[in-house]
Nucleic acid binder design. Structure first.
Lengths: 128, 128
DNA sequence: ACTATCGTTGACCTTGACGTAAAAGTCAAA
DNA sequence: TTTGACTTTTACGTCAAGGTCAACGATAGT
């Protein structure tokens, strides 16, 4: 009893549009099955979509996401390709570490904003 | 002796184009001084640009960045505005925390990719 | 005087990631 | 059988964030 998800089922779950999922298929990120013309998504497709959306949230482009998926599907066998891949992976990691630091800095900045707001609220609250 | 930075000085430092800085001025993010028509950037402008770029790296839109700058320049005095601001800040924080988690998950995933690469390299190395 | 380098404005162009609308097929419930 | 909810494809539209190009001014070096 292989479970299938319909397209709208998934759009509801993930808060995206059908256009987005069809677009991702056009872009070669996903390959749902078909019954006639209708798309049928299996659990594996669903998990892949989750990963795509995670990539999207952290700012990867469609092309980058496609590349990552490719690597998972069939990792390069040739030496030069492997070395190239590893150096690109290292680049990405550095980028992500920078991004994480940016986020942490911004989070503490938001702490300050919040504190300033609370102070202000207290002032106003006292004044009335 | 108030130091000034020229536009190209900053583009070189930050790896962006003059178009980008002029665009940011058009968008009201920065307000460099002028001598005639030429823009003169002061250290404060430079620091602001750094923060703008940090916002950009973590995926904030121009509009969001402008909003944040606004809050810093003059925090709202009215109660309702303050409460609105605080709830929006809380939203952003949640978004950033999610993003941070996404990044951490992806970083460990990249660890795995790298390891797989190394294994593969060893195989190839041994095979030849 | 000529050339380089750096600066300006203004206008249109491009790219990514979808949105939206048209026209039509499928299937279940009332 | 008609309505409603779902699905499809094709195709043009949009929006953000700049890129690119033209035409020009100021300044410095040779």
């Amino acid at each position: 009893m292989n479970k299938y998800y319909s397209i709208t089922e998934l759009t509801r779950e993930f808060g995206i549009s059908t256009r987005t999922l069809r677009f991702y298929e056009d872009e070669g990120l996903i390959h749902p099955e078909r019954r006639g013309r209708t798309r049928l998504f299996r659990p594996a497709d669903r998990r892949l979509i989750q990963e795509i959306l995670r990539g999207r949230r952290i700012g990867f482009t469609i092309a980058e996401i496609r590349e990552i998926i490719q690597v998972y599907k069939d990792p390069p066998g040739e030496l030069g390709q492997l070395q190239l891949l590893m150096s690109r992976v290292e680049e990405k990691r550095e980028e992500l570490r920078q991004k994480r630091k940016d986020i942490e800095d911004t989070l503490t900045e938001l702490d300050n904003v919040e504190e300033a707001c609370l102070t202000r609220l207290a002032e106003i609250g006292v004044g009335t």
